[in-house]
Design a protein around this nucleic acid. Structure first.
Length: 288
DNA sequence: ACCTCGACCTGGGCGC
DNA sequence: TGCGCCCAGGTCGAGG
């Protein structure tokens, strides 16, 4: 469920603590979360390196070290939290056991032990998340980043390209919004929110949208994402920020998860249907 | 080129 | 109390 606002919330939380911290040891408990390289190279390369810049593109988290970069995708239930021994209460889902300590939390898959007894913990119940390590100089050419469309919160997000991308496809708009090659960062929650805000039905065919509708949608996307970030993300069940606290955006959603409840715009009951293989919640009256 | 479906994975909610 | 079933969803790959 981590979409752009949730990943940005994690990034901002980590940015307060990680830069300047050196990795002392690595505890990789679930090897299949690693796309590349092999576990041995991964665990050998990291100790001694210090975290530098933290970045994000769409839902991808980019953690730069001295020589390597870590690309992290949180999948559905990934939780990346910082454990600070100076503030042990309420910090993250689990305290970091000492290196080599037997497993206590079977969903804790990766621990980066940092200097000063701090730690970066990666927990992922459904294990859809993926990590990848690359040399800094080739990091930006990683396929996970290269295939992404523009991030709606960057200057690369431009109406002309957005409109053109929708003009040349006949798929349903909901499917296009979930396609990370069109726009990077939307998932089911914020796609429904953007469509509701723009007044467009999720099953509308892309090529039939008017320029005005596309303009409206183009503007709605960064707006709903910024709102999500402002309330530190949406927590349905699993999402937590870098400090282990849930997001506050759930109550502010206007469409997603509100089937049967009144539309904030017209009061009609929101409906839930399947569009492009995804559950979608929308207003029959406001969305055309 | 797009669509749908299954796979991955687990916990939570539901009906019986 | 407990079991089995289905659902949630990001992404990829298979087959139509």
């Amino acid at each position: 469920m981590p979409e752009l606002p949730e990943v940005e919330t994690v990034r901002r939380g980590l940015e307060r603590h990680l830069p300047g911290r050196r990795i002392e040891s690595v505890e990789l408990r679930c090897e299949d979360l690693l796309g590349r390289p092999d576990p041995e190279s991964f665990c050998r390369a990291l100790p001694g390196q210090t975290f530098r810049r933290l970045d994000r593109l769409g839902k991808m988290l980019i953690l730069e070290l001295d020589h390597q970069g870590l690309l992290v995708h949180l999948g559905m239930t990934g939780q990346l939290t910082f454990w600070d021994p100076a503030h042990p209460e309420g910090q993250g889902p689990a305290a970091p056991p000492a290196p080599g300590h037997p497993v206590r939390d079977r969903h804790l898959h990766l621990i980066l032990h940092l200097e000063g007894a701090a730690a970066l913990l990666y927990r992922d119940v459904r294990r859809f998340g993926k990590w990848r390590m690359d040399p800094l100089e080739t990091l930006r050419r990683a396929p996970e980043l290269v295939r992404l469309g523009p991030d709606p919160l960057t200057p690369e997000y431009r109406f002309e390209a957005f409109s053109a991308a929708l003009r040349r496809t006949r798929r349903r708009i909901k499917a296009a919004l979930l396609d990370q090659r069109v726009v990077a960062g939307l998932g089911n929650i914020y796609a429904d929110e953007a469509l509701h805000r723009a007044g467009i039905r999720p099953h509308r065919r892309c090529h039939r949208l008017t320029e005005g509708q596309k303009r409206c949608l183009f503007e709605a996307i960064p707006e709903v994402l910024r709102q999500g970030i402002a309330s530190r993300g949406t927590t349905f069940s699993d999402f937590v920020g870098a400090d282990g606290s849930p997001g506050g955006h759930l109550a502010r959603l206007r469409a997603y998860g509100r089937a049967g409840q009144p539309c904030a715009g017209c009061g009609a009951s929101l409906v839930r249907t399947t569009v492009a293989g995804r559950s979608s919640t929308w207003c029959r009256h406001c969305q055309r």
